[in-house]
Amino acid sequence: MSSAKPKSKKKKMQPSKKPKIILLTAVIFAVLICTILWSSLFKAYPVEGKKQMLAIGQGDTYSGFIDRLVKEDKASFPIVLKLYQKLMIHDTLKAGVYEVRQGMSIREVMVMISNIDNAQMNRILVIEGTTFKQLIDALKNDPLVTHDVSNLPYSQILQALDIPFSHPEGLFAPDTYFFAKGESDKKILKDLYSRQMKALDQAWEKRAPNLPYKDKYEALIMASIVEKETSVDSELEQVSGVFVRRLQQGMRLQTDPTVIYGMGDKYTGNITRQDLRTPTPYNTYTISALPPTPIALPSKKAIEAAMHPDSSNNIYFVATGNGGHKFTANLQDHNRAVQEYLAVIRAKN
């Protein structure tokens, strides 16, 4: 009787778990990518109502635009948006005003604002303290503006606009002006003139008593000087007060911006002692009154400051070297402030 060997049981092969893990990982990764893309590129741009206007300024960048969207909780994952712009759009932002319709994605908006042909409107930013020449140059160089008058001599521009002044400086509001494509420079200038005259009239009606101005045009001249002397809003009335008291006391204004304006194209960035001694109609180191015209386009705030100077006794001021100015009432204190300013400059250098 033979003894049979017991049969060995074969172990059943268990299916590997690796493919399932890989598949699950791929699904999770795909979901994550889709979520990121939706939250960044394909998320609807938030619009109040059926449509709204989106203004892009001169010099604005995609990076700044995207950062602003994220800060306002309108978009997520800025790195994805910036990468998409670099790889797919390439172009820079084009200044203008664009119509964003309800349902447009952030990606569609980004593409739209890279093409100026999509702009519904454009805008001109007139900076406070810039000159009429700079305003005219901006109009000349804007391809969306119809050039009717900007290439004319200044006297003919004023005549075409029916403006009863012999010099254009100061007469136009430094403001952000929105206009449709093809708007004429004539209409833009008329509107800016109207805004400036309205601001001047309103301030003149509410002016402080006993101001040393013969008329509101002289107040406009003063406003332009105040505008050029400080970029700190809180100092506007103090600067105005210094110059008003100088006029009242028969002192010369002695303000550098008037010298620079009188030099015209001769000014190359520095003023010499010879420049201060060289007479021009605008050099307030050599004339004992206001210059004959404004020297820049003053803001509404500067116009109001010219009408409401501070009530201190200060008749001098000098830069501190750290931003702003130090105001003083006598020459001794002023000279001390000058030495303090020079010490700050030497320390910085």
Rank of each mutant, 00 (worst) to 15 (best):
S3K: 08
P6W: 09
K12M: 13
M13I: 10
L24R: 06
T25Q: 06
A26V: 15
I28R: 01
V31H: 00
L32I: 07
C34L: 15
I36D: 03
K43S: 15
V47D: 03
G49R: 12
Q52V: 04
Q52Y: 00
L54I: 01
A55S: 13
D60I: 09
R68E: 14
L69D: 01
L69E: 02
V70G: 02
E72P: 04
D73G: 14
A75M: 10
L81W: 06
L81Q: 12
Q85N: 13
M88Y: 11
I89W: 03
D91G: 08
D91M: 09
T92K: 15
V97D: 10
Y98N: 08
R101V: 07
R101G: 03
R101A: 10
R101F: 05
R101W: 02
M104C: 02
S105Q: 02
V109L: 10
M110K: 13
V111T: 14
Q120I: 09
N122T: 09
N122Q: 09
L125V: 14
V126Q: 00
G129Y: 01
G129T: 03
T131F: 11
A138L: 13
A138Q: 10
A138P: 01
H147P: 00
H147K: 11
D148Y: 03
V149C: 09
S150H: 00
L152W: 08
P153D: 10
Q156E: 15
G170F: 11
D175E: 15
F178I: 12
S184Y: 01
I188E: 04
L192P: 01
R195M: 14
M197H: 06
A199M: 12
A199Q: 14
K206R: 07
K216P: 05
E218W: 07
S224E: 12
E227K: 07
E227I: 03
E229S: 05
S234T: 10
V239Q: 04
V242Y: 09
R246M: 06
R246E: 03
R246T: 02
L247I: 05
Q248E: 11
G250V: 06
M251W: 13
L253V: 05
L253Q: 05
T255R: 00
Y267H: 02
T268H: 15
T272S: 13
L276W: 01
R277S: 15
P279S: 15
Y282M: 13
Y285L: 13
Y285A: 11
A289N: 12
L290S: 09
P292R: 07
I295L: 11
A302M: 12
A305H: 00
A306I: 03
P309T: 04
D310Q: 01
N313E: 04
N313Y: 02
N314K: 05
Y316E: 13
A319T: 07
A319R: 08
A319N: 04
T320G: 05
G323N: 00
K326C: 07
T328E: 06
T328A: 06
N335Q: 14
R336V: 12
V338K: 06
V338M: 08
Q339N: 14
E340N: 15
A343C: 03
K348L: 13
N349W: 08
N349F: 12
